[in-house]
């Protein structure tokens, strides 16, 4: 009956079945992405190049799912960097699920594991070391592993260890369990919009390809850029123990997540715009939610982050919590 008689709850699970599930999911992402590319090329060749409707469909759903991942999955659910009203939490969980990057609880568990072991053994996607501790010497091998190869064979992060706060959340658990429904909704709506704009099956297929499949592919490239490029190239304003970097050129495409060195220095900060030129679209969304009263307790990095010199030491207190 005493807690001591029990083995500790594992951080990762040795489960061939769950490994297979993860692998199938990663393959499904590749197949859907390739289908999207083939459809788009096929349509262009057949005389249906993308028009404004297709590009708008893509942009709108990229932003919807991207904000779900960045504002929702990442800043709110993983790092608890702000609190929000239940409808906002549910909306962000649904929007993020549409990105098809795994269930919310899986995503949160994996990313908390990344922070616990950044660029060290145990990091699911470091350009410098495999999760099992094998160092990655080649630059190309490191890039390839941290870009997308990691998603095919990483350890299964245990949600019962890493995501207990979400397990306790009744409503969010229901949303989490309907993951495949949200993925399907994220494909069906753009297809329906395509059908309405152009009429017929060709319009629907174009909507599906641009607002759904290609959009999912782009969203994965956004996240893969962060797991790889923002640990390889760019500026290190803060001397964090990992090798995270800031990258202006990636900041718009990643909705602000490319200020990754800022993020690793202040993981619980909801807004990563420490200097005026550090564009952080996701941070602006959090600020708007706060202004309208839909979000509160927004954690900011504080004056230290704004006025610190390059390569300064880390603060020992303040916003720097996991």
């Amino acid at each position: 009956m005493s807690a001591t008689s029990k083995p500790a709850i594992a951080r990762t699970l040795e489960s061939p079945r769950l490994h297979r599930v993860q692998q199938r999911h990663a393959i499904a992402v590749v197949v859907l992405s390739a289908t999207g590319i083939l459809l788009v090329v096929g349509f262009a060749v057949a005389g249906y190049p993308p028009g404004w409707a297709e590009l708008a469909n893509f942009a709108v759903f990229f932003i919807i799912a991207g904000l779900g991942i960045s504002v929702g999955f990442h800043r709110m659910f993983t790092h608890c960097s702000f609190k929000a009203a239940t409808p906002v939490r549910v909306a962000l969980a649904v929007m993020g699920s549409m990105a098809m990057q795994g269930t919310l609880k899986f995503w949160v568990a994996l990313h908390r594991r990344h922070h616990a072991h950044s660029d060290e053994p145990g990091d699911p996607h470091s350009p410098y070391v495999l999760e099992n501790g094998t160092p990655l010497h080649g630059k190309l091998a490191g890039f390839w592993h941290s870009y997308m190869a990691w998603s095919f064979g990483h350890e299964v992060p245990n949600t019962a260890f890493y995501a207990r706060d979400l397990i306790r959340d009744r409503i969010i658990s229901r949303v989490n369990d309907l993951y495949f429904v949200w993925v399907a909704v994220g494909l069906a709506i753009p297809a329906a919009i395509g059908a309405m704009v152009h009429g017929g099956w060709i319009g629907a297929a174009q909507g599906l390809a641009w607002g759904g499949l290609i959009r999912i592919y782009a969203g994965h490239n956004m996240i893969w850029s962060i797991t790889s490029l923002t640990h390889i190239f760019g500026q290190r304003d803060f001397a964090t123990p990992d090798r995270s970097t800031n990258n202006l050129w990636l900041s718009v495409f990643t909705l602000g997540e490319a200020w990754h060195n800022n993020h690793h220095a202040f993981p619980s900060a909801a807004i990563l715009q420490f200097r005026w030129y550090q564009l952080d679209i996701s941070g602006w969304v959090v600020a708007v939610l706060e202004k309208t009263g839909l979000a509160w307790n927004v954690v900011r990095a504080g004056e230290y982050a704004r006025f610190t010199n390059l390569n300064s030491d880390l603060p020992t207190s303040g916003a720097r919590q996991p």
Binding site: A10, V21, N158, A160, I167
Partner: peptide
């Protein structure tokens, strides 16, 4: 599932229970 245990957490719980009881326990 009302406790919010997703499939991964369920595998974790059955794995630990199986070890505790010394028998193979499917999730």
């Amino acid at each position: 599932d009302r406790y919010g245990l997703d499939s991964v957490a369920a595998v974790s719980v059955t794995g630990m229970l199986g070890k505790h009881l010394g028998r193979d326990l499917d999730a």
